[in-house]
């Protein structure tokens, strides 16, 4: 009997992760419901807006809501494995830590997009007037890049705070400051695109920042996850 190679393990862990998430729909639906509530609250609190502020408000509102909802989602990513000592048992299996991290990462990106994209579309519908002349499809690439970065950091932070008693407050306290660059980049690029219809040279700089953030954190994730989880040395 040969232990599967890292890629095969990645597939097994990812498939299992997806099954595990789908088997507990509350985990998928509650962040979305939360996002919807926040969007409604925003609309209610802000009311009528001058035409030149509408796009900025839409972008800020939608990305902020996504951030808040994702924070909830991400802080819970290891919860299925925390129950019944599944996490510990996984560590006693001949699992490649890189495969484990990447499987978790890809799963979290999928979860993140399943929250971010509906939030953008629902927000667009609620802000119909603002977006009458623009297409929101242009902000999808920046959303994907943003979620890619947030997910790497999200998984790492979830693993770091897994055993901490004050996890509920600690996670957001760390998550929001560290992801400020992603929030800023996503908002700047989206506002430029929606107001001007194109990406300009500033947008390029922001895209580059986002891409660097993604590369830094996925790399750190792969390098540090095994250090974090492997207690046997």
């Amino acid at each position: 009997m040969k232990t599967p190679n890292a890629f095969a393990q990645f597939r097994i862990l990812l498939a299992n992760g997806i099954k595990s998430e789908l088997s507990d729909l509350e985990r998928l639906i509650s962040p979305l419901l939360f996002a919807l509530t926040i969007l409604i609250l925003f609309a209610f609190a802000v009311g009528e807006v001058e035409p030149d502020m509408r796009i900025k408000l839409f972008v800020a509102e939608v990305f902020l809501t996504t951030f808040l909802a994702l924070q909830i989602s991400f802080s819970r990513v290891f919860e299925p494995a925390r129950t019944d000592k599944v996490f510990d048992l996984l560590r006693t299996y001949p699992v490649s830590y890189n495969a484990w991290f990447l499987a978790k990462y890809v799963l979290v990106v999928m979860l993140g997009l399943s929250v971010a994209l509906p939030t953008i579309f629902i927000g667009a519908i609620m802000n119909g007037k603002a977006l009458a002349n623009v297409s929101i499809w242009g902000i999808i690439p920046v959303t994907v890049l943003a979620v890619a970065g947030l997910s790497a950091l999200g998984v790492l932070l979830a693993a770091i705070t897994m055993k901490a008693q004050s996890r509920q407050i600690l996670y957001p306290l760390l998550y929001f400051p560290m992801t400020a660059p992603v929030l800023l980049s996503a908002i700047q690029v989206s506002v430029t695109y929606l107001e001007k219809g194109i990406f300009n040279s500033d947008s390029k700089a922001w895209f580059l920042l986002l891409a660097s953030f993604d590369v830094i954190y996925v790399t750190l994730g792969v390098l540090l996850f095994s250090e974090l989880v492997d207690d046997s040395q």
Partner: peptide, 14 residues
């Protein structure tokens, strides 16, 4: 193969 005390290492929703 390890079997922990007081836990079974099963995904409880599956």
């Amino acid at each position: 193969e390890y079997l922990p005390a007081e836990a079974n290492g099963m995904y409880t929703k599956m």
